[in-house]
Structure formats: structure tokens, C-alpha cells
Design a protein around this nucleic acid. Structure first.
Lengths: 349, 349
DNA sequence: AACGTGACAGCAAGCGCTTTCTACACAAGA
DNA sequence: TCTTGTGTAGAAAGCGCTTGCTGTCACGTT
């Protein structure tokens, strides 16, 4: 059978209570005793029983990280940053926490399922990343869960996600998608573009909506008509960008710029333009969003809005672990930075 | 306080045992009783206490997925596939498992730490992805852990990782990195290249070594001298590819082809070549490995070896859940497929 | 010499489930 | 009518840990 605390206690000739205290280091134990216990632990190759420990102590060392798509570096980068702050880094013994990332695939049901699972595990904290689905019943269900988690002592942090008014205990680090989108389109307008295509993300998503709103705000500010035929929705992947671009071109071959929902989509757009025999940026300018690592390697390098994914994730991780003050009001907005590169230029004459 | 099984039992006017049986569905319960219990669960918004349940049942619904770098799509894609097979998909009630991905950052210590944490949680299964570190003591430590996990009833699966001879209970799905590397270099040699630079991954990694061995085997098969100055090691990121290429060019400006350890590195190589004023593939051919989604969008599109990441991950997930027969002998080799695209061509005259 | 007073260590009562074994009722076979 | 099933429910014994409380001993203090 597996080794238990009692076995260790017997070998070290102390009571189980003492072993527990040595292991948790939260109670004075004489140095000599401690050493004896530690040796016994080592000799027996003892590993604490997590469930038992969690049950007795009514806490757990699990920290959940929910992402929409783990295969997308956008989430991967944030998740990595969050996890790096969670795995008892600056911390020491006892600070071992299991940062677990859960892939919802953008599905509301799976999101809820994971939250329930984490609630069941009595997770120490939960970080939700990325945009939320804008479906009223679902949003309410999520908010209810978050509130319940909060009540049960789980720290809830939203990273790159708008605040949930119905779950006020959730700390929110929100990306300024609207502002970023606006800046990007302003940049293109500034170059002289007037016929801009927009490839939006999936509908009913906060990120999609906010970026699109920014785009439209820029158009409005310059009295450019927002022709609905110049906007196409699709998923956040290259294929969607490719197809959307073909569609936009079909609807209006005179486009001089394409703004994509994110960098991955922009890459697909570039591929479609290239196949259509159009040069970037001479014939058509292209812009992305996020500034993922590969964006600088596109040819030409992609103009985009850089989001401090890693920094935001690290901060979210620290807040989740209680190692950093939450922002005042529990809400902070993280701004993006316009990165002008080779994929945008003045429109053709 | 939080609602417990006993509360539900009281409300449904049955014993706790009955509630437990309804929830687990592993014991006959009269339909009327079941309904009453389910209503009570709903009314009280009851959520099972995971740790208590795991303790009593001596099992857990956690499945660990270890990856070297969660921000790298190579791992993200596999992790997504594994998780999709784990989250009780074909399955139904009770099949809810928490697939958790843990980011080791390629660090042996973190790998061991996570394994211990998972052992502590009595994980139902553990999937290790990607290459292993080739350090004898560490490999032994990992093997010992895996053996212990196996003894404790945890199913261990290696995905894209060579078998561990010292931990025979671990099922291994191994990528044929050696064969893929050989094919790639054969392709270049076939085009007429004789002076090939090789950008290898970090040293002391199985993946690095196997791909390099394949490359060298191809050189040897064609009586091409393997000049050690034509090989540079670096990390698996774009920056490493960029710098390594500069270094290779410095050492031998007459190179006609660069083979990179993976696609990300290849992208960095392309950037460096372009900055050096060299055209791809007219002046220098470039090849990658893995065929990540962005590789086809490189300009020119990257010649590479496609690894069935998603398929392998899904299979590993199914095996971990006991829903698919392990391969005979517990070991299967997954082959890559050479994808010839625009980044390779005949060498300049 | 009697008495705090720390500093440690142990006892034992749970934590909230699961599961074995037992109990009971009713139907069916002898 | 008595036994043997069959289907369902409960009692209760843990699972392996944590922790409040209760000693115990060795020292200063009066």
C-alpha cells in the first residue's frame, strides 16, 4: 500500500500531528524532531495525500486558468505568464500550487463545466482569460458561478476580459480593445485610406464587438461611411481571414485596406491577397491585432496593436495569489500600443 | 456554510448513502427516489466536494498534461487534442474529468515538481508531451516517478516523446523525428544542395538529437562531409533561428540551404536571410519541422515535415482514458510527412 | 520551594464523502 | 406456509489528513 502520514510518524517515532506540522511548517517543531521526520519522509518516499489534506484543511492548492483556445498563442502566452506566477516562484516551501489550464474551446457550456469542476475541487483561485460570450443567460450563469466561487473563498480574476457587473468580487484586468481598434483604423485613415474592409471575429463576443466598435468610431470621427458590406465576421483563425478577404474583395474590389480581428486572421488575409495578385501594402494594406510573436516575421511585417499579454497575465497571476494589490475598484484597463510596420502604407492612387 | 451531502439527504428524506449513489449512478436507486434526490440537489445548488470524494473513493478525476512550453502552438495543439478527448466527450454523466495542462518551461525540476503534485492529487492519468531532457540523473528520477505513478494506478502516456525503458508501464506514442529529419535533408540533397547549415534545438534534448541524427544520416548516405561548423544549437524560438542563421552565414557565406529544428526557428532564419539580402529559395533554401499552422503563410511557404499533432494528441488522450487499446508493446511510432513548398528550391549556380 | 511560563508534542475529533454489510419488504418458488 | 430471491435503502466504518486543546517538561521567578 501507499505510505501514509502514520507510517512516517511511526518511523520517526512521533505522532502524526507532528509530521503534519513539519510538512506544513506552520507550527513550532524542535529542529532535531524536524530532521528526524524529514529523514523518515525521505526514507519512505512519502507523498502527501492531496485530497485528504484538502478535505481536512478545507483548502486546495489548485488554481484554474480558463482559456478559449489553448492552441492559440494569444492564450498560450497569457497562460504561461499566469502559471509562472503561480508555481510558488518567489515563494518557497508550501507554496506549491498546481496551476491548471482548462481549454473551453470558446464553448459556453464547457466554460461552465470547468467552473463547476473547479468549484468542486475547491480551487484556491480561478483566472478567466480572453473575451466573454455575449449571451445574456450564459453571462448570468457565469456570473452566478463566479459569485459562488468568490463566496467559497476562491479568488476570481478576469484577464483580458471585461468586468462582470454581476460578480463584483471578480478582479478585472481588461484590454482596451476599443481604443486599440480605433487607433489602428485612425492610422490607416491617416495614411489616406477611405475604403477599408473589416474582418471581425465571431459574433456575440466582447472582444469582437469592442474591436469593431473602435474601428467604427474611427470611421465616424472622419466622416467615412460605415458600409455594412465592408464588414465580415468569422472565427479567429487564418482560414477565416482567408475566406473573409476573398469575400470582401468580391464585394468591393476597390478596397485599399483590410483590418483583421487579430494577427492570425490577418495572416490569412495576406495569403488571400497575395493569391489574388495584390501586393501588400502597395495595392492593399493589412493590419492585425495582438502582436503575436510571428507577426513581425510576416512579409511584410504586420502593422498591429501590441497587447502586453505576458505582463497582464503575470499581474493576473500575482493578484490571484494575493501577492499584488488589486487595482482600485477591482478594475484596471490595459492599453495596447500601435505598432506600425511594413504591411500598411499609403493607398494606391 | 456550504451545502453538504447530508443536507441534500435531509431535504430529500433519504440517507447520505442514497444521495451518493444517485450522484454516482453506480447502484440501483428507485426512479422516484432518484428524482427526489435530484430535485434536492438542484434546490440547494449542491456541488460535490471533490477532495472528500477523492479521499473516500481513493481516485480522482484529474488528468495531468505536461508540456514544455504552453505558448508554443506545437504543444498547444497537442494539449487541445488531448483535453478534448478527456473532458467526458463520448462519455456522459460521471465522466467529467478535469484535464489540466502544466507548463514545465522545459525545466527538469518543474517537470518533477508537477509530477509530484499530480501524484499527490492521485491523478487518474498523466500525459507527458514533447521531447525529454537527456540528463541521466534526471531521466532516472522521472522514470522512478512514472513507475510510482503507474503503481498507484495512474495511467501514464508519453506523447511525442521517446519511450522510457525504465518505466515500462508508460505507453509511448513517439514521433519519428529521426526519419523526418532524414527525409527533409534528403529532399534538399536531391535538389542539389551540398552545403547545408543546420540549426539545432537545445542540447540534451531527445527531439534535438533525433532530428539532428536524421540530418546527419542523410548527409552520410550521400557522402557529404558533416562539417561541425555547419551546425549551431539554440532554443526553439524565432530569435534563436535569427541569430543562428547570422552565425552560420558568418562561418560560411556560401551556404545554399538552412535546415531548422522547427518551423518557429525557420521563421527566424528567414528573417535573418532576408535582412542579409538573400532571396528564398533562390539564394538559400530554408526548411522547418512540425508544419505548424502559420508555416503555410510564410513567404514563401515553408517546406517542412508535418507531424500529426492533433491526431497523436487525441490518441494519447483516448489511451489515457482507457478508451483505446494501447499499441502492441506499449510503443507506437508516429511518422511525419514531408511537405515540399516554396521555401526550398535548387541551389544557385 | 512553590509557581508561572514557554516550547514542544500528542490526543482525538472531525473534514465530507464512499462503500461494505446489513435490513427490510415484497414476490416467487417449494 | 416457509424459504429463497430480488430490489432498494440505511448504518456505520473508514479514507488520510489538520488542528484545537490538553498535557509535559525544563526553566526562570518570586
Amino acid at each position: 500500500m501507499t505510505v501514509t502520514l502514520a507510517d512516517v510518524a511511526a518511523r520517526a517515532q512521533v505522532s502524526p500531528a507532528t509530521v503534519s506540522r513539519v510538512l506544513n511548517g506552520n507550527y513550532p517543531v524542535a529542529a532535531s524532531t524536524r530532521e528526524r521526520v524529514l529523514r523518515a519522509v525521505d526514507d519512505l518516499d512519502y507523498v502527501l495525500n492531496g485530497p485528504a489534506s484538502s478535505l481536512a484543511a478545507a483548502t486546495s492548492d489548485l488554481v484554474g486558468i480558463l482559456v478559449n483556445d489553448i492552441a492559440d498563442p494569444f492564450f498560450g502566452i497569457m497562460a504561461a505568464a499566469i502559471q509562472s506566477e503561480i508555481g510558488g516562484p518567489g515563494g518557497r516551501a508550501g507554496g506549491e500550487r498546481l496551476g491548471v489550464v482548462c481549454n473551453t474551446g470558446g464553448s459556453p457550456e464547457r466554460e461552465l463545466t470547468y467552473l463547476t469542476l473547479l468549484q468542486r475541487q475547491r480551487a484556491a483561485a480561478v483566472v478567466l482569460t480572453g473575451g466573454a460570450v455575449e449571451d445574456a443567460p450564459h453571462a448570468a450563469a457565469v456570473a452566478a458561478k463566479l459569485r459562488k466561487l468568490g463566496d467559497a473563498g476562491t479568488q476570481v480574476v478576469l484577464c483580458g476580459r471585461p468586468p462582470a457587473p454581476d460578480a463584483p468580487e471578480a478582479i478585472a484586468l481588461t484590454f482596451d480593445n476599443r481604443g486599440g481598434g480605433q487607433q489602428l483604423t485612425e492610422h490607416l485613415i491617416g495614411l489616406g485610406h477611405r475604403r477599408l474592409g473589416y474582418i471581425a471575429g465571431p459574433e456575440e463576443r466582447t472582444t469582437t464587438r469592442h474591436r469593431l466598435e473602435g474601428h467604427r468610431a474611427a470611421l465616424a470621427a472622419h466622416d467615412i461611411e460605415d458600409d455594412p458590406r465592408r464588414t465580415v465576421h468569422g472565427r479567429y483563425d487564418r482560414r477565416a481571414g482567408y475566406e473573409a478577404t476573398l469575400e470582401l474583395l468580391r464585394r468591393d474590389p476597390s478596397l485599399t485596406a483590410v483590418v483583421a480581428a487579430n494577427d492570425t486572421v490577418a495572416l490569412g488575409a495576406c495569403a488571400a491577397l497575395r493569391e489574388a495578385g495584390l501586393r501588400i501594402p502597395d495595392d492593399v494594406s493589412v493590419a492585425g491585432f495582438d502582436d503575436l510573436p510571428f507577426s513581425i516575421d510576416a512579409v511584410p511585417a504586420l502593422t498591429t496593436v501590441r497587447l502586453p499579454l505576458s505582463e497582464a497575465g503575470a499581474r493576473a497571476g500575482r493578484i490571484a495569489m494575493g501577492r499584488e494589490e488589486p487595482p482600485p475598484g477591482g478594475i484596471a484597463t490595459v492599453r495596447g500600443e500601435l505598432m506600425v510596420r511594413g504591411s500598411t502604407g499609403v493607398p494606391r492612387a
